[in-house]
């Protein structure tokens, strides 16, 4: 059962990382245009080089 001493903190940490990522997306306005983003990803414009 000592394995729990590792597993529980690890699982909590992973969850925290997920939560952190969610809060980051929230902070950087990534939910402003869900429909536009869904379409934007299909555009070939910046496939070869990133947007300057």
């Amino acid at each position: 059962m000592t394995v729990l001493a590792y597993l529980i903190p690890i699982s909590l940490c992973l969850g925290m990382i997920g939560l952190g990522a969610f809060l980051w997306t929230l902070e950087s306005n990534q939910y402003d245009d869900p429909q536009g983003n869904a379409s934007r990803i299909l555009r070939p414009d910046y496939d070869d080089h990133p947007k300057a």
Binding site: S11, L12, G15, M16, G18, L19, F22, L23, L26, Y31
Partner: peptide
């Protein structure tokens, strides 16, 4: 945004406590 943040935190906590 505030509601979404509270929702996110509650979702994280719910999944962990459920486990």
């Amino acid at each position: 945004r505030e509601l979404l943040m509270r929702l996110g935190v509650a979702g994280f906590a719910m999944m962990n406590i459920m486990l």
